[in-house]
Amino acid sequence: MDLTSASVLIAIAAIFVLVGLVKGVIGMGLPTVAIGLLGLMMTPARAAAILIVPSLVTNIWQAAVGGHFRELIGRLWPLFAGIVIGTTAGALTLVHSGGTAATLWLGLALIAYALLGLIRIEFKVPPRHEGSIGFVCGIATGVVTVATGVFVIPMVPYVNGLHMERRKLVQALGIAFTFSTVALAAALQHAGEFQFGVLWPSLIALVAALIGMRLGQTVLGRIRPETFRLCFFIGLLLLGAHLALRAVL
């Protein structure tokens, strides 16, 4: 696929306006939805390479805002260390992963994330085991990230299970997403997927995502976030099912 063709660039821009809108309304979903929609056009690895710049910019901003950066680093460092280790381990096998297998795993990851969102299962992490569970979840998240480009499973359920207050939770997710994005970029570079050719599509994706987030803030005042959230997870479930079925049929 020629990433510099007008039709592909227009499609990428449209996708990122949409995912930016989603993030603007419910505060999450940009990398997950983007990987899923781009996966309809290209391999998950190539989609993840395009996602790196917009994901890194938005996540650094989210990680820097909140006033609890040092506290969260001190508390969640086992999770972050696990992410780096898991991503590194996964990167050693990324170059051997076929496109069909990667698409299947991407579809299954989206299905799992959507079901967790729809069922709304709440986990509670025991404080005395927070570090060890976080380390294991970080390793698992790193492996899943390399395989699919999605870095929400099982990291997001784990962080939600810490039951932080809202401001800390948002900042904690921003820091974790930043670690995952940087680690994924290194893995993609190792696999030869993160090349200069994805820079222009990535910059277009960044601008489109910021426009979408602005539109999302406008939509936020006209629709109930819970209604939008329900539609988001149903759509994600259908997208994941489509990708998984396409990979096996």
Rank of each mutant, 00 (worst) to 15 (best):
T4K: 13
S7P: 07
S7Y: 01
V8H: 09
V8W: 00
A11P: 04
A13R: 05
A13M: 08
A13L: 05
G20F: 01
V25T: 03
G29I: 05
G29Q: 05
A34W: 00
L37F: 15
L38S: 00
M41P: 05
M41W: 14
M41S: 09
T43M: 02
P44R: 11
A45L: 03
I50F: 14
L51I: 07
I52R: 03
P54T: 09
S55V: 07
V57P: 08
T58M: 15
T58V: 14
N59F: 06
N59I: 10
W61L: 11
H68V: 01
R70V: 14
L72D: 04
L72R: 08
I73D: 06
R75C: 03
W77L: 09
F80I: 01
G82H: 13
V84C: 11
I85S: 03
G86R: 06
T87M: 12
A89S: 10
A91G: 14
V95C: 03
V95H: 13
A101M: 14
W105F: 15
A112Q: 06
Y113E: 01
G117H: 07
G117N: 07
L118K: 05
V125C: 09
V125W: 10
P126L: 11
P126S: 12
P127L: 13
I133E: 06
I133L: 14
A140M: 15
V146Q: 07
T148V: 06
V150I: 14
V152P: 06
I153T: 09
P154W: 07
M155C: 10
V156S: 01
R166V: 13
G174I: 12
I175T: 03
T181V: 02
A183T: 03
L184F: 02
A185Q: 05
A186R: 00
A186D: 08
A187H: 06
E193C: 06
E193F: 11
F194E: 06
L203D: 04
L210A: 12
I211C: 07
G212E: 11
L215D: 08
Q217V: 03
T218I: 10
T218P: 04
L220H: 15
E226V: 14
R229G: 10
F232Q: 10
I234E: 07
I234W: 03
L236F: 09
V248F: 00
